[in-house]
Nucleic acid binder design. Structure first.
Lengths: 166, 166
DNA sequence: GGCAAATTACTCGGATACACATTGTCCGAGTGTCTCTGG
DNA sequence: CCAGAGACACTCGGACAATGTGTATCCGAGTAATTTGCC
């Protein structure tokens, strides 16, 4: 039960991209520098997000990444599934079939109760993640912020944001 | 987001131990043989369960493992936490502090909203796991069983179960 | 001076090494049981 | 025949390798801005 380090980076990156102006674009190098992480490694996850349809890419000079959807339409679940993969955490390897005297195959038609319970819990977990959107995160952040956090973000965007003709 | 293979083995082992008679004991080798998995590796997880107070160990010949509590008092969450460790899956590495111009430390007093949302989801996940007990699993298994599964288990226990003087 | 084409520099994208964690295995310590010997 | 001590065999417990996944990195393909030459 362990989530990769890239999940946190991906979420922060999406949250950051959500606060730039319409048509604005941010390069992966800028995001990595802002978060103090490896550029090449962050690229890997940004590509995954791009492939999942969460981010749009603008190639060429003055290019970069941009949200493909509205912040209210991007949930934490979308990001986690894109980065970690859609496979469930608990994989029932049908341990019942193994061993010296396995059960008849007709019992395997329905999944065992253990697998059902574990997957049910995971389903609840994902449903909870799907409740919060990027827009929600920005809203809750604004509540506790006295202006310092927003100021830092704006200052950084002022320097690194690129506005494309779209 | 991936759970270890040992989790499934551990749950199945506990479920198996829940169906033996009062004072009965099962050796790790027998459990491993029944499930067709590595004995030494299963031992590792059984030890973890023992350390967590879920199983009792009986040393010496005719020794083995036994449930330390009633099946109704053992939840899936207990087993998962024992095997996978109590650490949460999402670890906020406080990415905000890194980078060229970190935020003042006073903003770190409260966890960031991202971390809060992720941990909240995980809390829900664990709460769901805590709902189902080993007794529940046995009950649901009995509902779909026409006698074949129980027969196999009883036959195996008849051979390998050891009854200690306690 | 305006236009067009080649160049250039910057971006993302995928294929490639390194590190850590999980998986799998082994040998040693501990304990109850069995046996052998003495009374 | 009974009791006790010794040896034994079986158990769990922790320390030691091997594989798989995640982490980090590099170089190549593509594209838009730029520059330069021509009209």
């Amino acid at each position: 039960m362990k989530l990769g380090e890239g999940v946190e980076q991906a979420i922060h990156s999406v949250a950051m991209l959500s606060s730039l102006s319409e048509g604005g674009v941010l390069s992966a190098a800028a995001i990595a520098e802002f978060h103090g992480v490896s550029t090449s490694y962050l690229l890997k996850h940004l590509q995954a997000l791009s492939g999942a349809g969460i981010l749009d890419t603008v190639p060429g000079p003055k290019g970069g990444y941009r949200l493909a959807r509205k912040p209210a339409d991007i949930t934490l679940l979308d990001i986690v599934l894109s980065v970690e993969g859609p496979a469930p955490a608990f994989r029932c390897s049908e341990i019942r079939q193994r061993g010296p005297n396995p059960l008849p195959s007709r019992y395997f038609a329905k999944p065992c109760g253990i697998s059902a319970a574990m997957l049910k819990a995971e389903q609840v977990y994902r449903a909870e993640l799907a409740k919060t959107t990027i827009a929600d995160l920005g809203r809750t952040l604004a509540e506790v912020d006295d202006g310092g956090i927003a100021a830092r973000g704006c200052a950084f965007l002022e320097i690194h944001e690129r506005k494309t003709a779209r």
